[in-house]
Amino acid sequence: MNIIVCIKQVPDTKDVRLDPKTNTMAREGVSSIMNPFDRHALEEAVRIKEEAGGTVTAISMGPPQAEAVLREAISCGADDGVLISDRAFAGADTWATSYTLARAVSSLGNFDLVLCGKQAIDGDTAQVGPGLACQLDRPYVTCVQKIRSLADGEMIVERMMDDGYDVVRLPLPALLTVVKNINEPRVPSLRGKMKAKKAEIKVLTAADIGAEKQCIGLAGSPTQVVSVFTPPPRGNRTVFTGTVEEQIGQLVERLKAYL
């Protein structure tokens, strides 16, 4: 099994708090982490490799500093890391990102499975996984919560739905996006960390993957951001006082519209 895992580096929101007055996010000094959903995709890939053999290649499209998440991926069990990085990629929307990743995946040779996280926690679009599958012209299933079986060129998976789940069969090569209850990601091993330190991270540029100029970066993005603004802060806040009985009385009074 040749498995490719798509990983995004995102800002860590762990210790971030909203400023209650301005309702803006304090981003100062925020470090970068591997997108949490992608950790689950990587873990699933490594588990498949441990069971069925093969290789796991982690790829990430991003600035040079995104190399760090690829090293982290290697420390968690990936065999290789490939960074897709070029200034020409900057400003890509989900269409251009899907295109760029598809070119990169194709340039890496044959694969059996591409795994992605359901969505990235900074953009929250959940569009790149399906977009990539479309660009690669491979079948895909989103929001996979379990891989039931994987053999003989096909797989049976459970796709989480809003009201339960579907059991779906699809042929390989294919693409899956995964949700977080598919597995419990491991902590990077000592050996993995040593390997990650020494690993050579291959860098692919726009020219390396044969990307067409009008399909990448800002120029390749059908959508365009026209304005960015901070949402208005939430309205008045009331802190009730008095005994528990009294506080509840006041609350019930205010909630009458909902009763």
Binding site: D93, T94, W95, S98, G123, D124, T125, A126, Q127, V128, G129, P130, G131, A133, C134, Q135, Y140, T142, C143, M160, M161, D162, S221, P222, T223, Q224
Partner: peptide, 23 residues
């Protein structure tokens, strides 16, 4: 922007070279 919508609409947008904004 449901499980179903978010799953297949991106594919349609890609196929049509159309811009898609999520959520």
């Amino acid at each position: 922007a449901t499980a179903i919508g978010r799953s297949f609409i991106p594919q349609v947008a890609n196929g049509l070279n159309a811009g898609l904004t999520a959520d």
